[in-house]
Design a protein around this nucleic acid. Sequence first.
DNA 1: ATGGTCGACTCTCGA
Length: 263
Amino acid sequence: MEKMKIATFNVNSLKARLPIVERFLSGEDSPDILCLQETKCRDEEFPVSFFSDLGYSCAFRGMKSYNGVAVVSRTKPDEAVSGFGDGEDSEQDRARLIRARFGDLNVVCAYVPQGKEVSSADFQYKKRFLSRSRALFDRDYSQSGKLLWTGDINVAMLDIDVTHPENKRDHVCVCEEVREALAGVLSWGFVDVFRKHLPQPGEFTFWDYRVKGALERNIGWRIDHMFASPPLAERSESVRVARGLRAMDRPSDHTAVTGVFEV
DNA sequence: ATGGTCGACTCTCGA
């Protein structure tokens, strides 16, 4: 048995967040595996040596300006692949989904589309991204294996996952339609390990830049998630939200979430 | 409490 810390962090530009990422990697939550979203970084510009200097290997796929995901890890994954691999992957799909295998542990790092407005084509893309995720789990993974689906999922699944949900019934991250779409993926057999360890209201991972004093007033959202297969969820020991990263200079609007697993 | 900021990149888009 080995204790593994696995973290997720939507950095909202990796280059702008390098000091915060460095602090996080060398701090008290120092993860074995870190899933990043919104790196906004082309592959040829990815800061590989920044991570190798800190003792981390990285698998990544990005685009100019938008999207971009990476799995950073102390040990090199046995396999890493971007996209769904369903024959329909666009450049954007591949910059939103990357999966890595470490022995019998599978980590799927996702940046689910935000969706803009319920009436938009972006929202259709979001729902399709979620249904393709379910198909991926059905096709490539087993409920009896160790799987973690983590990242910026862009859905506040429960009313306690957002401040004032009653004002957000039409929001692309809150509406019934998107919750049903996420439920359709979770019914694969996932356990919400964040809520297993932090069941109380007021636990958020994102505080909007545009809301004045959002962090201090704790007006936020829980949209970054850690969903685990039952065997992995049973081996989860704790989950922590790194609120301190929001107190640093030039913070992301999201913060990091770390899960500790005995695998 | 998504009008209100921030980041990337041309000034407007995406979140």
